[in-house]
Amino acid sequence: MNMESLELGQEFTVKEIKDRENPMVRKLYAMGLKEGKKAKLLLKNGRVYLLRLNNSRLIIDRDLAKFIEVS
């Protein structure tokens, strides 16, 4: 499923990230968000999401989140 359907506070596992050519997707990878990783949706604010990944917190926008399949 898509990240959009996640509830606040819900934990999820990254199933697939599309478009690995995209530099921003590459940056996401370098920031540690990749297939198999567990993360948690902390907050939503308009078109941005705040995620918790291990001990870090990442902000990503909704359009970029569309590239991420979660389960």
Binding site: M24, K27, M31, S56, R57, I59, D61, D63, L64
Partner: peptide
């Protein structure tokens, strides 16, 4: 179009 927004929030 707008570029994507990715950023880390430090504690």
């Amino acid at each position: 179009s707008m570029s994507h927004f990715v950023m880390e929030l430090p504690p």
